[in-house]
């Protein structure tokens, strides 16, 4: 936020502290009932398990799936699910924007001296989803140790950066698609196709998809950069479908690009909201 107010004095706390206070209060509100919170964390862990069961059942039928072995597909699943759950914890609740608009809570945010997106993002943190993240970490750790990766410093770095970059990509998808509800009030389910659909698809080898689906989820909605492409780079394999290998390393860059695009989409949406009235 670029702003100089006549009231901002050197003693005034920073924007970061403002967000910090909001986030802390959200966390405290969720964990207040320890019993049910623990229960929900376990439930989220189980969601991860159920998601993974699909890959387990697939490999009950076949030994190679889209040209990849179990550990390799599990690696894609682990990377994608780590990224998705992190993104979901951070900004997943933006999909409730239509509710906020209807209840007037969104207008209340607009009356406060912080950017609306920042307030929307910090309005909630679903910590219970850490359960699903934990499951994803287990899968990732197990698959990394069994996928016969030839380790180099670059690959270690890529493994560390990929879940974060992927999380940024999912945050961008969440924000960009939630913005749609400024135009379509009931558009939440439409967004699901790209957020939850993106998560589903990004945990699979892209070789199983039709060319049109593949291109869309690589170059329009960059889900390929979350699981499949970085997994190729870690495994030292070329894309069987012929994408250049440098693309497999460009997840972090794509994440920055996606974030910028999502920011632009949000600004357009907000301008529309203020312009159209509700």
């Amino acid at each position: 936020m670029v702003e100089t107010s006549s009231r901002a004095s050197p003693a005034a706390p920073s924007v970061a502290r403002a967000y910090g206070a909001v986030i802390r209060s959200r966390v405290a509100a969720q964990t207040a009932y320890r019993g049910s919170f623990a229960f929900e964390v376990v439930g989220q862990f189980a969601i991860g398990l159920v998601d993974f069961s699909e890959i387990y059942v697939v490999f009950h039928q076949v030994r190679a799936f889209g040209g990849f072995r179990f550990a390799e597909v599990a690696l894609m699943f682990g990377l994608a699910t780590c990224a998705f759950t992190l993104g979901d914890i951070a900004v997943g609740h933006v999909e409730r924007l239509p509710d906020y608009v209807r209840s007037g809570q969104f207008d209340a945010m607009l009356l406060r001296p912080l950017p609306a997106l920042g307030q929307l993002v910090t309005s909630d943190f679903s910590l219970r989803r850490l359960g699903r993240f934990a499951f994803a970490l287990v899968v990732l750790a197990a698959s990394v140790s069994r996928a016969h990766i030839h380790w180099t410093p670059a690959r270690v770095g890529l493994l560390a950066v990929t879940p974060v970059a992927g999380a940024v990509i999912f945050c961008a998808i969440f924000v960009a698609t939630a913005t749609v509800s400024f135009w379509l009030v009931e558009g939440t389910e439409f967004a699901n196709a790209f957020t939850y659909g993106g998560n589903y698809l990004s945990s699979m080898p892209f070789t199983i998809f039709d060319r049109a689906v593949r291109s869309f989820f690589t170059f329009v909605v960059p889900a390929a950069f979350v699981g499949y492409l970085p997994a190729l780079a870690l495994l030292g394999r070329d894309d069987p479908l012929g994408l250049p290998s440098w693309l497999s390393w460009s997840g972090p860059l794509v994440a920055l690009l996606a974030a910028a695009v999502a920011g632009l989409v949000w600004r357009t949406g907000l301008r529309h909201y203020v312009g159209a009235g509700s």
């Binding site: 699909e54 076949v62 799936f65 889209g66 698809l201 699979m204 070789t207 199983i208 039709d210 689906v213």
Partner: peptide, 9 residues
Amino acid sequence: IKLSVLLAI
């Protein structure tokens, strides 16, 4: 997506 998975099998 689901169909792609099954067809790959």
